[in-house]
Write a protein that binds this DNA or RNA. Structure first.
Length: 835
DNA sequence: GCAAGGTC
């Protein structure tokens, strides 16, 4: 370490030390002051929680007078400028550009004053914040406050991972500089979370709250329908499982069971085949067994089995187990853990625990923590397990028996058990006649609703929230009336929660899935590693989310439709008008039976839909920026079959780019470039699976709200959304890949038809950037493919709008990427995957 | 009245 500019020689310098929480300030001061002359003194700061410890210490031969205080987590918060704070102060869209500022909230002002006062009298500052990204960000918050009070501070960062003597002494002798990149990554997260959260929350609250009778809320005028990048995916997990259960169709299966009794006892033998769904097949085998029922022992295996104690308790594991064993909510568990920590019984509950108090306490969480610790350091339980296999008429059956030899850790860990079962002794080749041989039937059952432990597991796996915040997100679902928890701590969505997820799902968005958060996490990592710049990530992400927001707003009809399934319309809003039957635009090319007419939806968006609805769901959605539309008497000379009447459009000036005219006479038959471009820029009134401008493939009913229930389950096919098979086995896959192949050939043969390709990509995308990159311009965007993130590199020499996909890449998209010669590179292995 | 992240 360089010698401090204000230090030098033997003169004692004053060093301000700041920890993230009072307990760390106290613990580190205790370690550093031990065996130092003068001992340790404590005095109050302006905040009653954050004391100041004083002692002498020598850093690299420099005698120091150490002042050690703390903050309590983040010192600052990010907020919009005052003029954007009120909900009706601006269009929520502006929250993507509105100025934001960091400020010290009222309840942290006393800590700020302490820091300012103490910093004035010091030459050095050592930042002892936790060594993670949030800690680094807090370090810069502390620094900002202290530097304003004293410009000449010499700044150092202590890196430590445990509050043990050796590590603390070593870290203070090898001080480093704070890491700006780590802090930048947190700045990015904060700003994105704030802008997305506030814009979508205001949007959906103001859109839906007054439009429907939300009977569950006592005061629905003050209800907030919040959206957040963590709370919504958490809700998504709950809804997805709920839909999976709804979609489950019980299926009868058949199994053969065999029992054997003799002097030593009895045994139940299970059929090696498990069960069969084919009754005829099961009956045939059963009859074979009945005719030759003599059982011959074909295998006897004896082995020692160990049951291992649990791993040390992490915060999430503590929450899961308390929920499983005691049915305590994760929020309640964290409250108790916090209390135990405050009273000195357990170590800090929000980070991994590596020390345990010897004191005892009757509180259940404490008992769990202690017993868990004791189990961790105990020996595994030991059992002797016997497996016997028998043969009856060529069919195999097996039975297992277990004797517990030593309970070991199970003695102390009373929350777990290991059942034993005794079976008689069998020898190889032994024969016997079973006591019973039965053909039994059963039905498949759906998975259970998600338990709190399941939900925590899903969040943990998907990286939603941190160990300190997961329980908050779960509680938020309950507080917002998005989900309920039943008496067995299992979660199901409320009508509101289901409607919101359904609405976004019908738009084709996966805003309720964890991919967005995963992508943000990926970007944050890139910022903290220095491979991407903070401004670049912020700009890209917010631009994409703004486009997504615009698109969601243009498709708000889908949210309306989903809400209307569950709730009565309210007379408080003006959105309840009936749809008017409009003028005929053309004959429907899908059902060939009805006319397509121009209509304005209750939410204001325009569409050209088939009068054969609901039997025929052919629809063409028009740009979201339309204020008026009327069918003219002019017909298009290039589109067909049959007459296609042109439409007079009037667009909202502020919602279209300046180089487009607000008045336009256009055609929906597919020839109109201007209309197509405006759809690309402004989005449409819907993103239903029906095609835009009547092109491309479309399963006209795939995402219809009316089909809900059976089509959304996790177990349903990702391609056709039908149940009964997964995407791997999709019967439509064969024809689908043929389509993809022929399309590939078509496209390769005639890349002049690029417009349809652009539309094709758009239709599949979750949200489209409104800005078209210039031809050949370098750009990049990400694609989440299963668990891997792909990035599209150079935009090829065609005009195609950049996309951001928040879901796995479909086969057709891979073809599109291939045809466009877009390299798809795996972020994880850096290999090109579509060569 | 919005987010998520610290911690009291």
């Amino acid at each position: 370490m360089a010698s401090g500019g204000n230090g030098g020689g033997g003169r004692v310098i004053r060093v301000l030390n700041v920890a993230e929480k009072p307990s760390v300030a106290k613990a580190v001061s205790g370690i550093l002051s031990r065996n130092q002359g003068g001992g340790m003194r404590v005095r109050d700061g302006r905040s009653r929680y954050n004391k100041i410890f004083e002692f002498n210490y020598t850093i690299r031969n420099q005698p120091c007078q150490m002042l050690f205080t703390s903050v309590t987590g983040h010192l600052m918060e990010l907020e919009f400028d005052d003029r954007f704070r009120k909900w009706h102060s601006c269009d929520p869209l502006h929250l993507y550009d509105a100025p934001v500022r960091k400020y010290v909230p009222q309840d942290k002002l006393d800590i700020k004053r302490t820091l300012e006062e103490e910093a004035r009298g010091c030459q050095w500052i050592i930042l002892w914040l936790d060594c993670d990204r949030e800690g680094e960000n807090i370090a810069f918050e502390v620094l900002e406050v202290c530097r304003q009070a004293n410009h000449n501070l010499n700044v150092w960062r202590a890196r430590f991972s445990a509050l043990i003597d050796r590590e603390i002494h070593q870290s203070v002798q090898t001080l480093v500089q704070p890491n700006q990149l780590f802090s930048d990554a947190v700045d990015v997260r904060q700003e994105i979370d704030l802008r997305i959260g506030a814009s979508f929350t205001r949007f959906q609250t103001m859109l839906l709250r007054d439009a429907f009778v939300l009977d569950f809320a006592t005061d629905d005028r003050n209800l907030v329908l919040s959206y957040g990048p963590c709370q919504f995916p958490t809700l998504g997990f709950v809804v997805e499982r709920y839909w999976e259960i709804q979609a489950h169709e019980p299926e009868e299966f058949w199994t053969i069971n065999c029992t054997h009794n003799f002097d030593e006892g009895s045994a139940t033998f299970n059929w090696m085949r498990g069960h069969l769904f084919d009754y005829t097949c099961a009956v045939t085998i059963y009859e074979m067994c009945i005719q030759e029922p003599t059982a011959t022992v074909s295998k006897v295996k004896q082995q020692e089995k160990l049951k291992y104690p649990p791993h040390p308790l992490s915060t999430i594991e503590l929450e899961k187990r308390a929920s499983r064993y005691f049915r305590m909510s994760s929020e309640q568990t964290m409250k108790v853990a916090e209390d135990l920590y405050q009273n000195g019984f357990i170590s800090y509950p929000r980070t991994e625990t590596d020390c345990f108090s010897e004191k005892t306490d009757l509180r259940r969480v404490y008992e769990l923590v202690v017993r868990h610790f004791l189990a961790c350091v105990s020996k595994p339980a030991v059992g002797a397990e016997t497996t016997v296999e028998i043969d009856i008429a060529g069919e195999s059956f097996f039975a297992c028996g277990r004797v517990i030899l030593a309970k070991n850790y199970l003695d102390v860990y009373r929350f777990e058990s290991w059942g034993g079962s005794v079976i008689p002794t069998y020898t190889f080749g032994q024969q016997f006649i079973p006591r019973s041989l039965t053909l039994d039937s059963g039905v498949t059952r759906p998975p259970p609703l998600l338990s709190e432990a399941d939900l925590l597991g899903c969040m943990d796996k998907a990286g939603i929230g941190t160990d300190a915040t997961m329980h908050d997100h779960i509680k938020k679902l309950l507080d917002r009336f998005y989900a309920i928890k039943d008496s067995s701590t299992r979660f199901s969505p409320t009508k509101l929660g289901e409607a919101l997820v359904m609405g976004y799902d019908d738009m084709g968005y996966e805003l309720w899935k964890p991919y967005l958060r995963a992508m943000m996490e990926c970007d944050m990592k890139a910022v903290s590693m220095g491979t991407k710049r903070k401004t670049e990530v912020l700009e890209t992400c917010l631009q994409q989310m703004k486009a997504c927001f615009l698109d969601a707003r243009a498709n708000k009809g889908k949210l309306f439709e989903a809400m209307a399934i569950f709730f009565e319309r309210s007379n408080r809003s003006s959105g309840g008008e009936q749809q008017v039957v409009g003028d005929v635009v053309r004959r429907c090319g899908l059902c060939l039976e009805s006319d397509m007419v121009l209509r304005q939806k209750p939410d204001g968006n325009f569409m050209v839909g088939c009068l054969g609805y609901p039997q025929c769901r052919n629809v063409v959605w028009l740009p979201g920026s339309l204020s008026e539309a009327s069918v003219t008497e002019n017909t298009c000379t290039s589109c067909g079959p049959g007459l296609v009447y042109k439409i007079q459009f009037r667009f909202r000036r502020l919602e279209i780019p300046p180089n487009y005219s607000a008045q336009h006479i256009g055609c929906i038959g597919g020839c109109d470039d201007i209309l197509r471009q405006l759809v690309g820029i402004c989005g449409t009134g819907s993103r239903s699976s029906s095609n835009t401008f009547g092109r491309g493939r479309g399963n006209p009913t795939a995402s219809s709200s009316a089909q809900r229930g059976n089509s959304r389950a996790q177990g349903s096919c990702a391609y056709c959304r039908q149940t009964g098979h997964l995407s791997n086995d999709c019967p439509s896959q064969a024809s689908r890949s043929c389509t993809a192949r022929s399309q590939e050939v078509d496209l390769q043969n005639g890349l002049e038809n690029l417009q349809s390709l652009v539309i094709h990509v758009e239709r599949l995308a979750i949200c489209a950037l409104p800005i078209l990159p210039a031809t050949g311009e370098e750009s990049s965007f990400h694609v989440n493919h299963g668990s891997a993130i792909f990035s599209f590199g150079k935009i090829p020499s065609v005009e195609v709008s950049a996309q951001i996909l928040l879901r796995p890449l479909a086969a057709e998209e891979v073809v599109v990427a291939k045809v466009l010669q877009i390299p798809v590179v795996c972020h994880l292995c850096q290999q090109q995957v579509n060569q």
